[in-house]
């Protein structure tokens, strides 16, 4: 009852996990059936791996070891890997929640039929996010296994990092859904791609944020991927501290805000 009232207030509609799950389930069914879709997933995993080896080894050989805030030094590849994991979680979630979601809403008109069932717009938003996360967790899981095998992190820390990577995916999935509801044409996705790439480059991924000018440090610290990188790097490199709680809180708030916005917009777009 309380949750009903809360979701009604925030998203304007009822929210039942079972019905959101049915939306996720639809995507699982489509995924199993579609051959081409697998390629998308494989290519999604290939990208961070290419960066890891090309930059991690290549540039790493020039840069040498990296000092960590806690005084230790690690190889450049070790420094880079967790950031690539966070970025991969972002990319996977955004791809699913913007492009695919937009196509389903605008072109396949998939939700027109779904809305004739008891399923509400907010349940669709949650269901799609759930699916984006399933896809994201495949990327993250595989990448974490690789990190543990390469000795970049320990298996125990990798296990802790897994839900953290999922949270990064949740946050970007929610942002992606929200953005998709305001996109009008495919052109808009090009702009989004540029922003996404800028986040990828400047969120402390390749160099510590402390090496930027102060003004830029402030800006970077307001953006979501920075918090994702901090969180995942903090865990996998064994720098557990309370500051990570802030990163978690930031990502949770972004997730909820994105979902609420997306659900409200969808209600407007689809219930004419």
């Amino acid at each position: 009852m309380v949750t009903t009232l809360v979701t009604r207030a925030v998203a304007g509609d009822e929210l039942r996990a079972r019905r959101a799950g049915a939306v996720t389930g639809r995507n699982v069914t489509a995924f199993r059936a579609g051959g081409a879709y697998w390629w998308l997933v494989i290519s999604g995993m290939a990208e961070p791996l290419l960066y890891l080896f090309a930059i991690g080894w290549g540039v790493g050989a020039l840069v040498g070891d990296m000092p960590l805030p806690d005084g230790r030094t690690v190889s450049y590849l070790t420094f880079l890997a967790p950031a690539l994991l966070a970025a991969a979680a972002m990319n996977g979630a955004v791809a699913e929640s913007t492009m695919n979601f937009f196509a389903k809403m605008k072109f396949a008109k998939l939700y027109d039929s779904v809305l004739n069932t008891p399923v509400t717009p907010v349940e669709i938003a949650f269901g799609e996010l759930g699916w984006a996360m399933m896809r994201g967790s495949m990327y993250s899981g595989a990448f974490l296994v690789l990190m543990a095998v390469m000795g970049v992190t320990t298996p125990a820390l990798a296990l802790v990092a897994f839900p953290a990577a999922l949270l990064v995916g949740f946050a970007f999935g929610a942002i992606g859904l929200a953005l998709a509801t305001v996109m009008r044409t495919w052109q808009d996705f090009d702009y989004m791609g540029v922003v996404q790439f800028a986040l990828f480059l400047f969120s402390g991924t390749f160099v510590p944020v402390s090496s930027y000018p102060v003004a830029m440090q402030v800006i970077v610290q307001l953006t979501p991927l920075y918090h994702g990188v901090e969180l995942v790097r903090g865990i996998t490199l064994d720098m557990l501290s309370w500051s990570l709680a802030w990163n978690v809180l930031y990502l949770v708030v972004v997730t909820l805000a994105g979902l609420a916005f997306a659900a409200r917009r969808m209600r407007k777009l689809l219930r004419k």
Partner: peptide, 12 residues
Amino acid sequence: RENLVTYARYFG
């Protein structure tokens, strides 16, 4: 068939 099964799932 998947269309029908999936649709039924939306109804719980």
